[in-house]
Computed example of a mutant assay.
Amino acid sequence: MFGYILEESIIQFPKVLTSVEISKRLSISYKSARLLKQRIQVFSSHQVEKLRRIYYDDLKETFKDVTLPKVEDGKDIKKHLGKKLYRKIPHTDTAVLYSASQRSNQFRKRFRHGGLTASIYQSDSVGGRQIGTLVSTIATQNGCVFFDSIPDQKANTLGPLIRKTVPYESPLFSDEGYPWLYGIYKKHRAINHQAHSKDKRYKLARNRWSKLSVHNQVAEGNQRLLKSAFSAYCYIKPRYSTLYLNELSFIKSIQAVGMDTLVTAQRKGVVPNVSKIYNLTYNFK
Score class of each variant (00 low, 15 high):
Y182W: 01
K37W: 02
T18K: 07
I28K: 00
T92H: 02
E49G: 04
K154T: 13
H196C: 07
L225D: 12
R239Q: 12
Q38E: 12
K84A: 12
V126D: 05
R189L: 05
P171H: 06
Q141C: 15
K84T: 14
I77W: 06
Y178C: 05
P90Q: 07
V48E: 06
F63L: 00
R239L: 03
H188L: 03
Y235R: 12
Y182F: 05
F284A: 06
P272R: 08
I11L: 15
G183F: 00
R129T: 07
F284N: 06
L81P: 00
I77C: 05
K285V: 11
T140L: 04
D58R: 15
K109V: 14
I28R: 04
I138T: 13
V270A: 08
S29C: 03
G115S: 02
I184T: 04
L36I: 04
L243A: 13
V214F: 02
N156S: 15
L226P: 10
Y86F: 12
S213I: 02
V214A: 06
Y182S: 10
L248D: 00
I40F: 09
N105E: 03
I251R: 13
G115T: 02
K198E: 09
D58T: 15
A139K: 06
S210K: 15
Y240T: 03
I22L: 04
E7T: 14
K70Q: 11
